[in-house]
Nucleic acid binder design. Structure first.
Length: 830
RNA sequence: GCGGACGUGGCGGAAUCGGUAGACGCUGCCGACUUAAAAUCGGCUUCCAUCGGAGUACGGGUUCGAGUCCCGUCGUCCGCACCA
């Protein structure tokens, strides 16, 4: 028996699949369609284990779907714009484009070595003009439809690097690279009107049945719809202040009005009064981290202004500037009802404001509210004029209709979701196709001038945006009036690139972003697989972009991803030397640091990360064990949504199984005779593994395949054994495709196993004629009986009572009651 | 603080409907083959123990029967966060 040579077989079959274009999807196929997609990678340099796990899962599903006769679209590409390329440019002096393209070449070769069934004919990279040019066209379509606008917005500005920083690049208020104190700067930036779609994005979640509940909930909270009343208070200085509340029913319990420190009213007062200015400045101090906010004291500053109650003009509420009111949410101003809101109560107690009960818990109707715990539960309105006696919901409706009738307020829905700011003051991104003209304002670049290509001759040696500094690139004539004008030098957020790549995969004509008819044949993506870290932003933006395209009549698809699966991470033990250095796995052997011979502290199993040195590079592992062993390991043991702990022993176990498969299938010979039990097991396994793969429960499929493999090994030669070995080979083919192809040939088959059909199940083989029945006495298992399936209740009961073990357990007591579940169990209660 | 998920052997985990807990894999141990080793094959591997008993984080409950359902407690992880 020859040992299976994985490396040789890997290379051979990969080139065969390539040459035959086995996995290229046919747009004109009459077969049922399956669009299987994993989140495309950022070309950071090398493939990591997380990629391997992600793409292996999608690959098994894609290959399985092909075997059951689907036309499968399973493409791959590169999310190739982004800051790491610019960082590399600054650190190593390489051009971001060269760096990115070299990484793509490396990673593509690495992916190929894993034998993924990908349609490489549709490969795309977002950093190439033949992708981002079409993105510019789509951006202009949205612009024409009024879904793009420009407004002032503040950014984190690094005054040394002269660059805008993302929030995660600001560490303790300083730029991560320069260490300079970061300033807030107002810049005019482009926004997409995602908030116009807030309602449909929220309501659409309900239809996404094949999404994890967790992700739907996260998006729901992120969109954050609140319904309430927006209304105006008249101020004592003749001005007005507009507030939003979700509890308009409690309006008669109001005892103060509070505005944010950057609210226009506060700003106006601060401009005149140094004391106010000092307070406003104080509000802006302090961090915005969770812990800081939680412990931060509620501070208020009494402006001396008063607000007139909209219904009872005799009531005048003091107006405070308060540090807990956010300008970004609602109207930047609130009214405080201390009896029924905890934060308002804390504030009222601190500044000695009245606390008036307006909702009764049923026990207490006294207008004077005592205690330090606000009542937020249900009840009847009290001390509230015409609202008295109503429940909370009725009172809300009554007050909103009165406000609308009298013209001082309106029922409103407020969202937490903000419009999507897409401007980035960066080089390595999609240029925003707009020209700024002094006379005409912002003018879209005419479609026939697209793509607006990034200039290649840029330098990162000097700080600032290279596009802005470039001597000629931005200077152009206004397309509208012809006078000298300048290009927009901001580029698009890379989340825009990933908001439509799945559409471009489905259809990629040269002259437009996609062909509507072809794209609609494939979309939506049937199964999308990726990390949970994209649960909100990427998935929400892609949903928005798709709906926006539908809105402007470009594509009739509401939701881009019908099914979503978020896979767990690949983890590894961590190791520390006795002097506290992190050690990488190869530096450690049997708990000893090989270099020093000293013992090592084994830490917790954690996500693979460079900082903790617990990463395992897939490439040498593939070199050593072959692609199939790595793929098999990725599917084994851990449920795919949970973390997978990488282990040396585990990969060796997988390698052994690949070898064992090879032996089982190649040593198997045609023979005579039946083995009904094995035949039944094989059919059951076909059915169950199919279900497991469809449900992405690969760990269960793996366990079943081990069981079938062991049963075949133990069985005596027979016709059924021969058939079972053949079945086993087909079942493992989506998971370990290289050894499967090799064994397919060795068994004398023509063609590729990749093109073979999934085995059919004979329903007759799924029924058992014998069953094992559990026999319990008082709920405790005492015996098991093997009986014909469908044995009558009376017979079951009699057989159970006749069991020696039951008789012993009864200790002479008479059964009081006997529960019989046919074909399952008998429970004797004594 | 709010919201959510989870808690099963030495480890990863299985048990789809309330019906035989621990499938399958890893580790470990014993044995076969071998001059020897590797590879491979066979057996054992929840705990305590003599019969037998206990056991799915802990404490209660419902039920003939609970890993699974309900209530409470503890713990771990994730998301959001002064949201009006």
């Amino acid at each position: 028996m020859t040992r299976y040579n994985a490396l040789k077989a890997d290379a051979h079959w990969q080139s065969v699949w390539d040459e035959r274009r086995t996995f290229a999807a046919d747009d004109h196929s009459a077969k049922p369609r399956s669009y299987v997609l994993e989140m495309f990678p950022y070309p950071s340099g090398r493939i990591h284990m997380g990629h391997v796990r992600n793409y292996t899962m999608g690959d098994v599903l894609a290959r399985y779907r092909r075997m059951i006769g689907h036309e499968v679209l399973h493409p791959m590409g590169w999310d190739a714009f982004g800051m790491p390329a610019e960082n590399a440019a600054m650190e190593k002096g390489v051009h971001p484009g060269s760096w990115t393209r070299a990484n793509i070449a490396t990673m593509k070769a690495q992916l190929k070595r894993l034998g993924f069934a990908l349609d490489w004919t549709r490969e795309l990279a977002t950093c190439e003009p033949d992708y981002y040019g079409h993105e510019q066209a789509l951006f202009l379509d949205l612009f024409a439809a009024g879904l793009v606008y420009r407004k002032e917005s503040s950014v984190n500005w690094d005054p040394v690097d002269m660059t805008v920083l993302a929030n995660e690049q600001v560490i303790d208020g300083r730029g991560w690279r320069s260490g300079a104190l970061v300033e807030k700067r107002k810049l005019s930036q482009w926004f997409l009107r995602i908030t116009d779609f807030a309602d449909e994005l929220l309501d659409g979640l309900a239809e996404l049945k094949d999404w994890p509940d967790k992700v739907r909930l996260m998006q729901e909270n992120w969109i954050g719809r609140s319904q309430g009343l927006q209304f105006r208070f008249r101020l004592s200085d003749a001005g007005e202040v507009e507030v939003f509340t979700t509890r308009p029913d409690t309006i008669f319990g109001a005892s103060f009005v509070a505005v944010a420190a950057d609210h226009p009213i506060a700003q106006a007062l601060a401009a005149r009064d140094a004391e106010v200015a000092a307070f406003v400045a104080r509000c802006k101090q302090g961090g915005t981290t969770a812990a800081e906010l939680e412990t931060q004291e509620k501070l208020g500053f009494d402006t001396g202004l008063t607000a007139q109650h909209p219904i009872d003009p005799a009531v005048r509420l003091p107006v405070y500037i308060a540090n807990f009111v956010l300008m970004e949410y609602g109207t930047g101003a609130v009214f405080g009802v201390p009896a029924h809101d905890q934060r308002d109560l804390d504030f009222a107690r601190k500044y000695d404001l009245p606390v008036r009960r307006v909702v009764s818990d049923g026990a207490d109707e006294d207008p004077v509210f005592v205690g330090d715990e606000a009542y937020t539960g249900p009840g009847a309105l009290v001390n509230s004029h015409f609202l008295d006696g109503m429940d909370v919901a009725d009172a809300k409706r009554a007050i909103i209709s009165r406000a609308e009738g009298e013209g001082w307020g309106t029922g409103t829905t407020v969202f937490r979701l903000r419009d999507w700011g897409v401007s980035r003051q960066r080089y390595w991104g999609t240029p925003i196709p707009i020209i700024h003209c002094a006379a005409c304002g912002p003018v879209p670049v005419p479609n026939d001038q697209l793509p607006i290509v990034l200039p290649e001759d840029v330098s990162f040696a000097v700080p600032g945006n290279p596009l802005d500094r470039h001597p000629t690139w931005k200077h152009v004539a206004c397309p509208s009036c012809g006078v000298d004008a300048v290009r927009e030098t901001d580029t698009l957020d890379t989340f825009v690139d990933s908001s439509w790549y799945f559409i471009r995969f489905a259809s990629q004509p040269d002259d437009r972003p996609f062909d509507r008819t072809v794209a609609e044949e494939w979309l939506p993506v049937g199964q999308y697989i990726g990390g949970v870290e994209h649960a909100i932003l990427h998935l929400l933006y892609a949903r928005f972009w798709t709906r926006a395209l539908r809105h402007i009549g470009k594509l009739d698809v509401a939701e881009p991803f019908a099914g979503l699966f978020t896979q767990g991470m690949v983890t590894h033990e961590t190791y520390k030397s006795d002097d506290g250095r992190w050690l990488s796995p190869p530096e450690v052997e049997n708990g000893i640091e090989t270099a020093t011979g000293r013992p090592v502290t084994v830490g917790r199993v954690e996500k693979m990360s460079k900082s903790k040195k617990n990463t395992v590079d897939p490439e040498p592992i593939v070199d050593q064990y072959g692609a199939d062993a790595v793929r098999w390991f990725m599917l084994s043991d851990s449920p795919p949504e949970r973390d997978l702990p990488w282990s040396e022993a585990g990969i060796e176990g997988s390698w052994r199984f690949v070898q064992r498969l090879w032996r089982i299938v190649t040593a198997d010979k045609a023979a005579e005779g039946d083995d009904l039990a094995l035949r039944k097991l094989a059919h059951r396994t076909v059915r169950d593994v199919a279900g497991d793969i469809e449900g992405l429960q690969f760990n269960k499929a793996v366990a079943r395949l081990y069981t079938l493999a062991s049963a075949i090994e133990k069985a005596a030669p027979s016709h059924d054994r021969h058939a079972a070995a053949h079945t086993l080979l087909l079942l493992v083919a989506p998971m370990v495709p290289h050894v499967a192809e090799e064994a397919w040939v060795a068994a004398g088959h023509d063609g590729l196993i990749a093109d073979a059909a999934w085995p059919t199940v004979d329903p007759a083989m799924l029924v058992d004629d014998e069953v094992t029945v559990a026999v319990q006495v008082n709920g405790k298992l005492r015996d098991t009986l093997t009986l014909a399936k469908g044995t009558a209740r009376e017979e079951l009961e009699a057989a159970a009572l006749a069991s020696d073990k039951v008789v012993r357990a009864l200790e002479g007591k008479a059964p009081r009651k006997v529960i019989v579940v046919p074909d399952r169990l008998v429970n004797i209660v004594a």
